[in-house]
Design a protein around this nucleic acid. Structure first.
Lengths: 359, 359
DNA sequence: GTTAGCACTCGTGCTTCGAGAGTGCTAACA
DNA sequence: TGTTAGCACTCTCGAAGCACGAGTGCTAAC
């Protein structure tokens, strides 16, 4: 988009102000903005041109101008200042991320909550395992006469377990035998290769008639298939109502309902690189046609890949949200890679050169 | 509350109709209701009395009547028909509950979703461990030179694990020694007795200078304290907007925000028996003063106790919601006790005598 | 104790109207 | 040629006024 310097300034001013106030912005208030020492009439002329270029529009003949999706797009691609996170902000994020490093789903929920708090938009977090996790190791622990624990280590370095109670008693020796057998036949084996025939072969090899082998194999299958399932978390949905564009209950409800659907969330646009901004009608889903989505990718270790995103009105503070989201995503990646969030992030942050920005 | 038979009929009719339409109900429409062959004027007189008793009220001088919270209370306590679940309904519930029996939090989320779907109100599910869980058994599994798995079994029969990678190598023999030591000193020990001095005593006893003992002990402490944390799930929040009483965005937002706060959810009224209905102003929280909460208890095994609840306007179909909630809670209890949801529930259901109810 | 009739009240939806904000256009100016 | 001041015009928004209808309370008759 080839814009004169003044047009750029005006477009930016319009968007900045509109993001702030949600009111159409008139030529006068732009004219009084420092940095532009021309009269409102001049601004009007420029704005009329910006409108004919499709970057601004008027809600009605005698109102101020409002950015179009295309206007936002130009802003995001060319005009957006790098928003600089304050020390207080990075501090909050670091502390929140550091405070607990627990189960993946817990981390996800926390990250979502954090993002939502920091952006005041609803946030979603999503983790999906790349298919193809396998069992790498296998142990059976005898607890008492008829109880034992299955402990399974997976190729993505997570460990899962299950407590099994049998209606009959087992011997330590049986378990040792079985665990050797399973380590031999079931490790490094993708789910689709664990067939009924493999299971019955194992049953024969072990001489098992009690069904233990089937129980254990069932657990493994369930485990591997549940890993393919993605987990999603939506937080801060009620933030939506902060924004006048969702004061219309029906609209808000439609969007909320859409966002509550895990399957839909999973279909939201994913970034090719680290971050993707999808503005209004660029969204495929009808429910999002006048909302924007900003989503960042984080790396959750070997076979896991995650997205963390924010949904809001097209009138969104793209620069601020993008900055925070990217910072959080980086933090998550480091955290899940087993690093220390705080130090990792502080380093990341300080060596990223960023321009100072007002407000 | 001592009401004449006709007053009861009228109160019930008013509530039933108001629940249906959300419009103040006038004497005329009650009069045309079958079962009462009196004129609207008579109904008016009765309604005036019900109003002076505090069971009904008029939004304004010349509108129909609306039940007061006290009116609902009388209805719930004395007048409510037992709602009979249709076979289709029990079937849906059974299938949904049966379909997957996974992790507790997964079950919770599913149960919440199911409840919300079946009642069309937002639902929450909550599980809290009674304090005082202890470790009952302890194992260490060597994976490779500097990696091992901690497997811990708890007094509530759940098993937890953690993969530990060390910056140095360990011997199988060391692990065996450590696990004996931990089994001796840390089992059956409530969290508050696991003191730094116990840990350092164990460190001395094992001759450990590497810090492994501290790592393991840290895991145990984290585990026990995380168990005390309750888990909550809120689902179907967007259902709220189905109801005209939440068309006011501010009101809806306040309530949604309140419900999204896990800490607040945990503070919601819990039943003494199996179910509790809290109507409008009976709620302590300001945000719930004009909403009602129906909550049922389910039993999640040894040390675990759960609640599943529904939040909606005071104009709520108490009888229907109560019936479904109670059925789901029973199903959950059976499921978590390891039973088969379907058979258990079908039995439960058929031997509960219930009156048939219209609509 | 019940019913019919009637005057009365009050919320709802509609229309009207004026204020205010912001524009486009024209004409003057540098 | 670009900028500015001025002005008529347009459109939204909120307030005020009004008619309608639903539902009541009361009274008098049954």
């Amino acid at each position: 988009m080839d814009l004169g310097e003044r047009k750029k300034k005006i477009l930016r001013a319009v968007i900045d102000q509109y993001v702030d106030t949600a009111e159409p912005v008139g030529s006068k208030s732009i004219a009084s903005d420092v940095g532009l020492s021309v009269s409102s009439a001049t601004i009007r002329n420029e704005m009329a041109e910006l409108e004919s270029m499709g970057l601004l529009e008027q809600p009605h003949t005698s109102a101020g101008r409002v950015p179009t999706p295309l206007g936002y797009r130009v802003y995001v691609n060319e005009l957006m200042h790098q928003h600089k996170l304050s020390l207080a902000e990075t501090d909050t994020i670091n502390r929140a991320l550091k405070s607990r490093m627990q189960q993946l789903d817990q981390i996800l929920a926390d990250a979502g909550r954090l993002t939502s708090q920091l952006t005041s938009y609803p946030a979603y977090a999503l983790a999906a395992a790349a298919a193809g996790a396998t069992v790498t190791r296998f142990d059976l622990i005898l607890v008492d006469q008829n109880t034992f624990i299955i402990v399974v280590m997976l190729s993505n370095k997570t460990v899962k377990n299950k407590l099994v109670t049998l209606p009959f008693s087992v011997e330590q020796a049986t378990l040792v035998k079985l665990s050797t057998l399973f380590n031999a036949s079931f490790t490094n084996m993708p789910e689709e290769q664990i067939t009924p025939s493999l299971i019955s072969a194992t049953e024969r090899a072990s001489g098992d008639t009690t069904g233990i082998v089937a129980v254990i194999a069932g657990f493994i299958i369930e485990l591997l298939s549940s890993l393919k399932l993605q987990q999603t978390h939506l937080t801060g949905a009620s933030n939506l109502f902060e924004y006048p564009e969702y004061r219309d209950v029906d609209k808000a409800q439609r969007l909320l309902r859409y966002l509550s659907d895990e399957n839909e969330l999973a279909k939201l646009p994913a970034p090719d690189g680290n971050m993707k901004i999808t503005i209004g009608p660029e969204n495929l889903a009808q429910e999002l046609k006048d909302s924007s989505v900003i989503v960042a990718r984080y790396d959750a270790g070997d076979d896991l890949q995650g997205l963390i995103g924010v949904v809001g009105p097209t009138r969104m503070d793209y620069s601020k949200v993008a900055a925070r989201l990217s910072y959080i995503a980086q933090g998550l990646s480091h955290l899940l890679a087993g690093g220390d969030a705080q130090t990792a992030l502080l380093t990341e942050n300080t060596d990223t050169s960023q321009k100072k920005r007002r407000k």
